[in-house]
Structure formats: structure tokens, C-alpha cells
Design a protein around this nucleic acid. Structure first.
Length: 568
RNA sequence: GCGCCCGUAGCUCAACUGGAUAGAGUGACAGCCUCCGAAGCUGUAGGUUGCGCGUUCGAGCCGCGCCGGGCGCACCA
């Protein structure tokens, strides 16, 4: 189903051709209701290009615009804007159409791409902490939205399961492992033995050497060390999986760094052979001398000691995703500090002749009350598990207060939906680059732009249908008499315009904003227009608006990875 | 030193990529339940968009220069 925006853009393009003018400008939502529903700056753009009077050009365009089927006569305003006001019947007809559209007005992308999206990426033998929320939740939402838009999405968890820390972990495992503690809380025990080994290694060069020897043995394929490593990975993955279940985040594959291990030598050899890489100070490096910002920042792909590092792994990863997974585009979701690294990796890929589209999608940090990176009082990272558990506990307390008559099992389920939803939404409703201050009170508030507010709006709609006790039947006609009805219907028609914009710059917060505005419009409608007590044909028409609101709220939240409860 | 990101109402954040008089929420104040969930709604108040030049018919957004904060810059990932 073509959106109003797309329809008007098409009509504008036709008018420009008919008026013998070049393509210019576009259609965007009006900035103010006084200016109608949509506006075009085409005349202003052309006026600049041609040095002509903008209002005269606007008139020339309007003379050729054939939009009377959908709009009141377009108006020329201000410096030369063309304003479009949709006819009420047009909105009503579109709303009726939306009711029959499974996609709720969201068209699939013109060309479907295979997208490999890399997000989350926790490290083995370390607990996931708050910092993982953003990458995980953002990547998941982008993957959901891309899939819905018809792309072929492969979700890959690039787990940090290989690296120098395993020397310490294995040494610790062999010397200080407490099996009972491991059974109790595997990752805590792995962290403990790692720290123990690390502390001793700092104090004692012999132990440092022993750790390094364990690492070398692991890398050489020693069966004992490999077995220990494998067990660490298995234990960690199990723990990650619990968090992913709670977050409702799922992957198509989990190719850890170790997966690429036997390809690293080939990568270096190939890059040397093609002279993309060279040897410098004993290390194999790629220089970017002709790129000013990177001129003094070489990328090391083999260390002087012959070892490989994460740059090597990431070059191999790009290879794999393009050659084996046939990616048209690769999205990597990580914090901003890795920006330089991926700039280098992508540049190497381009030099190797890869034409895929590479996107490093960065994000800001989660801060504590002190505006510094969120930490516990003792200065440790805050465990993800603790955050999620507390979210559910806090939500449960609120549900118990507000709705004590609900059965226990319902309240437990609702608390989970609200608590987890609140944490996710607090993240996604914000521009991804800004650092934000973590606040339980704000994210769990029922007021303002929060998950509970949206979930409550959904519950209110659903409650109407429970009360009605009848199955929804599409109405004979949509009637938009009250301004609140028209306002809500207009908003419902915009869903199809908003969803694709999210991928333009990877901004789920645009969808979150839309849903918030939709909930506002619904509440305005709800206060002004009684549904069940109204006379036909208003009653059926209003029920239809409720039904669509519920569908779009639920689906919009789902695209953000958030559930909507039936009661709360 | 170089590079990237951020700076918007007291506070927390938007602003659909250059559009018209910069919007919400929160806090404060004033209203609205014989009526579908008041977990809601309506209204009032709050601004030199860090500062200064520039480009443009038009700048929170683009360019240059400052000021503040964060992060990154050769063998950790």
C-alpha cells in the first residue's frame, strides 16, 4: 500500500514533468497542522537553482498538480511552500484499507538485500554487563525492522571466545578451580580464577610465563587446554542464552572469534601477496598513507611475535560474511570507541575489492547518576542479569500495587513484560549516539515516553474489546467526524511512512517517538469520543480505530523487541 | 598534537537529514471521573539551540574558528 507521502511525491514528480521543470525537492510531513498534512519545498529548491521567483514557480507546479482526488486544493504559503491537506474521506478510505492490510501500511523495501548484522558480542568467561544492553537491544530492533521490510537478515553473535585472556583462565582453571563454585555460578568462578591468575602473574614473572605457555598450548591444539577452553565457552554460552531468553533476543548463528582461527594465516599471506600489507618493525601492517586521518595509524594484522590479533580476525570475518554468507551489506553494532578499528577494517576490505556496503553502527554509553560510566559502588561493571532482575522486581511491585486482584501467575508475567520492556524502551527511545543516564524511576514511569505508558495505552484499547464482549468486525465505513477521530486516523496512516525511516540512519528512536505520539492521539480520542456507547455508524467506526491502534501499537512495539500485555 | 562523538527549557530527551512561530515528558501551578481502565486528559509557565563568524530566500542541522565533556590514536579485544 502506497503511503500518502509516496503518493504525493509521485504526483509532485508528475507535475514537475508536466510543468517542464526538472525533478527537485520532495514531500515531507507538515511541520505544523496549520500547514496541512504534507508540504513540499520543490519550488524553493528550483527557485535557487534557476534564479526565479519561488512563489511563481510554486504556482506553476500547483497548476499541474493532479491531487484533487485526495487533497483539498494545494496552497502556496510562506516563501513558496506548497501545502497539502488530505480530504477527510481520503483518510477514512485509507484507514479502512489499513484494516485489511496485514502489513499495516508498511511496504517492503524496493530491493531486498542480504544483511549480516553483528550485535551483542559478549566475551566468554566474563559476565554480560549493562554496556551490552545497547548493542544487543539496538541490533535486535534493527534486525527486526529490516526483516519486516523484506530484507534477508542474518543475525550473527560475534562472541569474544579467543584471545590472550585464555592463558590466565586456563592457568587458573588448572590451579585454583573450585568445582562446586563452578556448578553454582560458572561465570563468577571463571572470573575469580582469571583474576587470581592475573594477580599472581603481575606479582610473579614465572606465573606470567606459565600463563603464556598455557595460551601457546591452547593455540597449538593441546587436547587438555582445548577441552578446558571448550568447557568455558559452553558454560558461558549457556549463561548468555538465559539473558537472551529474558530479553527475547535471538541469533541465527554465533560465530565466535575462534571460528576464524584457522583462516588468519591465510588472511595475512593474502594481504602480503597483494601488497595491501607490508612488514614494518617486524609486524605485518596495512598503512593508509593517502588517507590523511589514517596516515599515521597503521593497522597491525600480525604482531611482531607472529601472533594474530582482533584486526586479523575481523578481516577474516568480513571475508566469511561476504564469500560464504553472500552478504550485500554488513552492519556491525558496537560502542563508539571501536570506530577507528572498523574504519581500518572496511578500508582493507575495499582494497581487496569488496563492493559490499559496510556500516559501523555506533552508540553512546549508559551513565550512572554521576554522569560517568555506570558502575557499582565498588567500581565494577553492573551485571546485565542484575539489571534485568531488578527491572522485573520493580515492575512487579508496581503491578501488585495497581492491580492486586489479578492472579499471581498473571502478575508475574506482566511484571516481566513491563520490566524488560521498560529497560529496552529506555534505550531505544533515545538517539543512539547520546549517552543517557540510567534511571529506574524514569523508565518505569507510566507518564511520558516510556514502555509502560505505551503498554498501558494498549491495555486500555484491549479493555474496550473485553468490555464489548464481541469479536471485531470491520465496519461498513469509517466516519471521521470529531477532530480527535481524524487526528488518530491520520496518525495510524503514518505508520508506513515511519518504519522505513528507521533504517535510513539506524534510528529506532524515530519509531519509538511515533508510537508515543500514536498513544497520545489515542488517549485524546479516548477522552473525547466514547466508543461502546456511541450510536452507529460511529460505534463501528470507532471500534475500527481502536482495533487498528491496538494492532499498530502491538506491532510497533514488537519491532522494538517489546511485548504488550493484555492486562496490567 | 591529530581524529571521532556529544552540547537544545531547572532536569531527562525529541526535532523524519536545510524549512515556516524549536517540540514532548518531568518538576511547579490550575482544572477534568453519576461516562469504555484517572496507569488517563486539558490548560498555564519555562529558550539568544555552548560562543563567534560564514554559506543560504531560510541554519539546532552545512563550513570555519573557539569553549566545555566523553572516547580513540603500533602489536589488548
Amino acid at each position: 500500500m502506497e503511503t500518502f507521502q509516496a503518493l504525493l511525491a509521485r504526483k509532485l514528480a508528475e507535475a514537475l514533468v508536466a510543468a517542464d521543470l526538472p525533478a527537485a525537492g520532495g514531500i515531507e510531513p507538515a511541520t505544523d497542522p496549520r500547514f496541512g498534512d504534507y508540504q513540499s519545498n520543490a519550488a524553493l529548491v528550483l527557485a535557487k537553482q534557476r534564479g526565479e521567483n519561488p512563489r511563481a514557480l510554486a504556482q506553476r507546479i500547483v497548476d499541474h498538480l493532479a491531487v484533487e482526488e485526495w487533497c483539498e486544493s494545494p496552497e502556496i504559503a510562506g516563501a513558496g511552500f506548497i501545502n497539502f491537506r488530505l480530504k477527510v474521506e481520503t483518510i477514512a478510505a485509507r484507514t479502512a484499507e489499513l484494516l485489511r492490510d496485514e502489513r499495516l501500511g508498511v511496504e517492503k523495501a524496493a530491493s531486498s538485500k542480504r544483511i549480516v548484522i553483528d550485535f551483542g558480542s559478549p566475551n566468554v568467561a566474563k559476565p554480560m554487563h549493562v554496556g551490552h544492553i545497547r548493542s544487543t537491544v539496538l541490533g535486535d530492533a534493527l534486525a527486526r525492522i529490516a526483516s519486516f521490510l523484506g530484507h534477508d537478515v542474518i543475525r550473527d553473535n560475534h562472541i569474544g571466545d579467543w584471545g590472550t585472556q585464555f592463558g590466565m583462565v586456563i592457568y587458573g582453571w588448572k590451579n585454583f578451580l573450585d568445582r562446586a563454585a563452578l556448578a553454582q555460578d560458572p561465570i563468577a568462578e571463571l572470573v575469580r580464577i582469571y583474576k587470581e591468575a592475573n594477580n599472581r602473574a603481575i606479582a610473579d614473572p614465572a606465573i606470567r610465563e606459565a600463563c603464556r605457555a598455557e595460551l601457546v598450548k591452547l593455540q597449538a591444539g593441546d587436547p587438555d587446554n582445548f577441552g578446558i577452553w571448550k568447557e568455558c565457552v559452553t558454560l558461558s554460552l549457556r549463561e548468555f542464552e538465559a539473558a537472551y531468553q529474558l530479553l527475547d533476543v535471538h541469533y541465527d548463528m554465533q560465530r565466535g572469534e575462534s571460528f576464524y582461527n584457522d583462516r588468519l594465516a591465510g588472511v595475512v599471506e593474502r594481504l602480503l601477496k597483494s601488497e595491501i600489507a607490508e612488514i614494518s618493525e617486524g609486524a605485518v601492517c596495512v598503512f593508509f598513507r593517502e588517507i590523511p586521518d589514517l596516515a599515521d595509524k597503521p593497522c597491525i594484522i600480525r604482531k611482531r611475535d607472529g601472533g594474530y590479533n582482533y584486526a586479523t580476525t575481523d578481516v577474516a570475518t568480513v571475508d566469511y560474511r561476504i564469500q560464504d554468507l553472500k552478504a550485500d551489506t554488513i552492519w556491525i553494532v558496537t560502542g563508539a570507541p571501536q570506530q577507528l578499528h572498523f574504519q581500518q577494517i572496511f578500508e582493507i576490505a575495499r582494497r581487496e575489492g569488496y563492493g559490499a556496503d559496510f556500516q559501523h553502527i555506533t552508540h553512546g554509553s549508559i551513565l550512572g547518576d554521576d554522569r560517568k560510566l555506570m558502575k557499582t559502588r565498588s567500581g565494577e561493571n553492573v551485571a546485565l542479569r542484575d539489571v534485568l532482575d531488578e527491572a522485573v522486581v520493580r515492575a512487579r511491585k508496581i503491578v501488585d500495587e495497581k492491580n492486586p486482584e489479578l492472579p499471581e501467575s498473571d502478575r508475574a508475567e506482566i511484571a516481566k513484560i513491563i520490566g524488560i520492556g521498560a529497560v529496552k524502551y529506555a534505550d531505544l527511545s533515545q538517539y543512539r549516539m547520546t549517552d543517557y543516564i540510567f534511571s529506574w524511576d524514569r523508565m518505569l514511569s507510566f507518564q511520558g515516553n516510556t514502555a509502560p505508558y505505551l503498554q498501558n495505552a494498549y491495555v486500555r484499547v484491549r479493555s474496550i474489546f473485553r468490555k464489548a464482549g464481541e469479536a471485531f468486525v470491520p465496519p461498513a465505513a469509517i466516519v471521521l467526524a470529531a477532530p480527535e477521530e481524524k487526528n488518530l486516523a491520520t496518525r495510524l496512516c503514518q505508520f508506513g511512512e515511519i518504519v522505513p525511516t528507521v533504517l535510513r540512519d539506524f534510528r529506532p528512536n524515530l519509531l519509538a517517538n511515533y508510537l508515543f505520539e500514536l498513544a497520545n492521539s489515542f488517549h485524546g480520542f479516548y477522552e473525547a469520543c466514547s466508543v461502546l456507547k456511541s450510536e452507529e455508524p460511529a460505534r463501528s467506526s470507532r471500534l475500527a480505530l481502536c482495533e487498528l491502534t491496538a494492532r499498530i501499537l502491538r506491532h510497533g512495539l514488537k519491532l522494538l523487541g517489546i511485548d504488550a500485555p493484555e492486562k496490567m
